Computed example of a mutant assay.
Amino acid sequence: MTTVGPLEDQLTADFYHFESLLPDEERKILLKARTFLRDEIKPLVNDAWAKAELPPELMEKFRGSGLVALGYEGYGEHKPAVSHLLGGMLAMELARTDASVCTFFGVHNDLGLSTFHTGGSEEQRERFLPALAALDKVAAFALTEPEGGSDVAGGMRTTARREGDTWVLNGAKKWIGNATFADLVVVFARDVEDDQVKAFVVEKGTPGFRPEKIEGKIALRIVQNAEITLTDVRVPEADRLQRINDFRDVAEILRQTRGGVAWMSLGVMIGAYELALEYVKERQAFGRPLAGFQMVQDHLVKCLGNITACWGMLVQLARLQDSGIFRDRDSALAKAFVASRMRESVAWCREVLGGNGILLDHDVARFFADAEALYSYEGTREMQTLIVGKAITGESAFV
């Protein structure tokens, strides 16, 4: 990775100096990641977004970045343990560069590695994690179905039927990131015997496993989402993740990653804000910079207020995670609030660019479009609101 700059170098959006809360060693990791993403990844983004393709060289660049499997110890190359605060700020930094790249990385590194690490037996960890940690193999996480999003816990239609030491999977999945090319896809299916959700590792090329790329997306275009059809897919019992035996085990993984999406939403806000700020300082109207107009400053200050409020919320969320008293309601409130503030902030950023705000060349358009996907995935605002609403009232309003 490229050598980092001085520790006092911080983002213009970090108005309250949140990065200073990181210990020096973790801040160095964050700044290295920032330099790597700026120099190696950002130049690839707009062309890839326009083509709706994942650049093949992106994988090789990430292999040498030191970011993959950061915080996972004991499997493959030794990686230092990191705090949840650093993990969140790294997700923010990835999304500040590009939300699609962050999603690709998060599916592999957070959902993928976390599922194997949390749900696998010791033997399965030793077998799968070294290749995933080295990015020699790519993971995908197949939970969402064509007819089920937020209600997938109680309405999963993909089934698993055991025949001796083999499981037979049938059904379909949708919106599965990385699945068009992933080497290992964790497929969640309902066991027809006990009606509980279990997790199965399906290798690329397995007969009956057919992923098809979803075309025509207006957001996260670099992410290779797939609709998967499973027809009598046979998976050995040895490839059923042994510590995932009902949906509560799946929910434990999602509880951790939902907070990550809130950090991503913060990163998208910051990315759009920085670009808008740079633009209005350079763009002239009526003989002076746009930055000198009251309404432009109003939009920028509202964005900065949203960024600062959300960053403060997420710092405390990370502290709760590190302290071990983290609950579903905590990540639900963060995801609902930060994603909502992101949605309005990127709209203001697009607005101050005027007509140029819809041009990919100015980058803000990409953040504006990608925000729509983040606003919905890992649980809609409405679903997160019901989780928090139940927590504060004691009454369930779920249908």
Rank of each mutant, 00 (worst) to 15 (best):
V4E: 12
L7I: 12
D14K: 08
H17Y: 07
E19H: 11
P23R: 08
E26Y: 00
L31M: 08
A33V: 00
T35G: 14
P43H: 12
V45P: 02
V45H: 01
A48G: 10
A48T: 06
K51Y: 05
A52H: 13
L58E: 09
M59H: 09
F62I: 10
F62W: 12
R63F: 05
S65V: 00
A69M: 03
E73A: 09
G76N: 11
G76P: 02
G76I: 06
E77K: 14
H78Y: 14
M89E: 08
A91D: 15
L94M: 12
V101C: 02
G112T: 03
S114L: 03
E123H: 09
Q124A: 04
R127S: 06
A134M: 07
L135Y: 12
A139E: 00
L143H: 06
G149H: 12
S150N: 14
A153S: 10
G154I: 03
T158K: 11
T159P: 08
G164P: 06
T166E: 14
I176A: 06
G177S: 15
A179Q: 10
A182V: 01
F188I: 01
F188H: 13
A189Q: 01
A189L: 10
V192C: 08
D194Q: 12
Q196P: 01
K198P: 00
T206N: 07
F209Q: 05
G216S: 14
Q224C: 05
N225R: 07
T229I: 06
E237Y: 00
E237T: 05
L241M: 10
R243Y: 10
I244C: 00
N245W: 04
D246M: 09
F247T: 09
A262H: 00
A272V: 03
Y279N: 04
E282W: 05
R288T: 09
R288V: 06
M295S: 12
D298S: 15
I307C: 09
T308A: 14
V315H: 05
L317F: 00
R319I: 04
L320Q: 10
A334M: 04
A336W: 11
A339L: 01
R341E: 15
M342R: 03
S345Q: 07
R350H: 11
R350M: 11
E351S: 11
V352E: 05
D361T: 07
D363P: 00
A365P: 00
R366D: 00
F368E: 13
D370G: 04
A371M: 07
A373W: 10
S376I: 08
T380A: 08
T385S: 14
L386V: 10
G394E: 12
E395N: 15
S396F: 02
F398N: 13
V399P: 14
